[in-house]
């Protein structure tokens, strides 16, 4: 993977953790999915991606993670340190919560004692130390998602990719998970790309919100979110917060009318 120095995108804070330049992707049946996408994400920056349903947001994440090769374009990612949180928790049902968190370390060859300790700490950091020995079927949707977060967290990724992770949990659990995620973001110092359908979730979590166009997806707008971290849940009810949400919603409506 080549590192690129794009001129037209100033990066945020410090060195860019990840950059993509002119990413295009077409499937073998020649449907064009991604068109000329260039983004740069700084160290310890939180970026959300919103866009019309089915536009290719998840595909963009798969490209950034290395699961999907782009047809053309240059990509610079910390390929060994990417955490991916899927839309569903993707826990291995035959493993307990703790053993699920251990999975990735196990695949990387970390010895049993170390990985058990690391896994237990990660599980504690998402508040699930008590459920370490439960099987996924004994956990609620929100708890499963926390185990999934802990599983990625334990490898200490430099880049964290989230594919609508909280779409299936209820509103209350979702706000709680958002706060937990921000707490993890503050302590674990990763860069994050977060795909979501929820405008307020995107605004609440991130420093920038990328708005994608309908398929073939390209970057239509980038909205800066002016709030400092740590953010309290109350900012959701401030006029500036509503203004950000309104701007994004307006852009999305326009994109869907085209």
């Amino acid at each position: 993977m080549n590192s690129t120095t794009p001129e037209h995108h100033a990066h945020r804070s410090g060195t860019p953790s990840i950059s993509a330049d002119g990413i295009c992707l077409s499937f073998p049946d020649s449907t064009e999915v991604l068109r000329n996408i260039s983004i740069e994400i700084g160290d310890h920056e939180f970026v959300s991606v919103v866009g019309p349903s089915g536009c290719g947001k998840s595909t963009l994440l798969r490209v950034l993670s290395g699961l999907q090769k782009p047809t053309s374009g240059q990509l610079n990612t910390p390929s060994n340190d990417v955490g991916f949180v899927f839309q569903d928790p993707t826990l291995l049902p035959w493993r307990t919560a703790l053993r699920n968190v251990e999975t990735l370390l196990e695949l990387r060859g970390v010895n049993a004692t170390d990985r058990r300790e690391l896994a237990f700490n990660a599980l504690s950091s998402v508040g699930l130390a008590d459920s370490a020995n439960k099987y996924p079927r004994q956990l609620s949707g929100g708890m499963k998602m926390r185990v999934s977060l802990a599983r990625s967290l334990v490898t200490q990724p430099k880049l964290f990719l989230f594919d609508e992770p909280f779409a299936a949990v209820d509103e209350f659990a979702r706000e709680q998970l958002n706060d937990d995620l921000l707490a993890l973001f503050a302590s674990a110092k990763f860069s994050a790309v977060f795909v979501t359908h929820s405008i307020s979730e995107a605004v609440y979590l991130s420093q920038r919100v990328i708005i994608m166009s309908a398929r073939p997806a390209s970057i239509a707008h980038i909205i800066e979110i002016p709030f400092d971290y740590p953010r309290s849940p109350e900012i959701r009810y401030q006029p500036d917060f509503a203004k950000c949400c309104g701007t994004i919603a307006r852009h999305l409506r326009q994109l869907q009318n085209i």
Binding site: S65, G66, L67, V82, F84, F86, Q87, D88, T90, L92, T103, L104, L107, R108
Partner: peptide, 17 residues
């Protein structure tokens, strides 16, 4: 499930693992 395969692919797991 495909997602579980992706999880292993991201860790560059071989066919035996």
């Amino acid at each position: 499930p495909k997602n579980m395969h992706d999880l292993f692919t991201l860790q560059r797991s071989g066919p035996l693992a």
